[in-house]
Amino acid sequence: MIADIKDQQLLEAFQQGLTLSPRPYAELGLRIGLGENEVIERLARLKQSGLIKRLGVIVKHRKLGYCANAMVVWNIPDEQVHGFGRRISSFEFVTLCYRRPRHGTSWPYNLYCMIHGKNRGTVLEQLRVLEQVCQLSGFNREILFSRRCFKQRGAIYQNAAPLMQPALANG
């Protein structure tokens, strides 16, 4: 977990991205008054504790030809949603799998997954396999393909007491 204010500052600075220069962690440290070793030790601990889920290159799928992106939503009985969620998330082409609350009659869905593909056909074929293997065909479901992307910035989290306003990297 976050140990102190320095961890918070470090995460906020790190979310702006590493510099593309030989000693990027030293440069990150300079911005918040920490030495290179301490930056590396703190980040290793944050990764170990799960607060950093992944550390690396953050790609824009659309720029690489992965133009079809479907958010698929199901209405699954509450007592079964965990089991289906875990099964769906085990497929390699599924990039996100979440449970969210239903919202009245206009939005009765509670299980979400995201499938990226090079085109609609591949996404729909992957979904067909997923539904067959997981035995999902009996549930109410909708597919929401994305059209225009108005903004993509990868999640940048701010703290309760913002220390700096994150730059709009791709705003």
Binding site: I2, Q8, L11, F14, Q15, Q16, G17, L18, L20, P24, L43, L46, K47, G50, L51, I52, K53, R54, L55, G56, V57, I58, V59, K60, K63, L64, Y98, R100, Y112, Q152, R153, G154, A155, Y157, Q158, N159, A160, A169, N170
Partner: peptide, 27 residues
């Protein structure tokens, strides 16, 4: 990596933080 950044194929090198671990989020 600089080329990938300049051609806008990558947004940055950094951490992915799970939702709701720092602050709160919603779809």
């Amino acid at each position: 990596l600089t080329e990938l950044n300049e051609t806008d194929v990558i947004t940055r090198i950094g951490p992915v933080i799970p939702p709701n671990r720092i602050g709160v989020s919603t779809l």
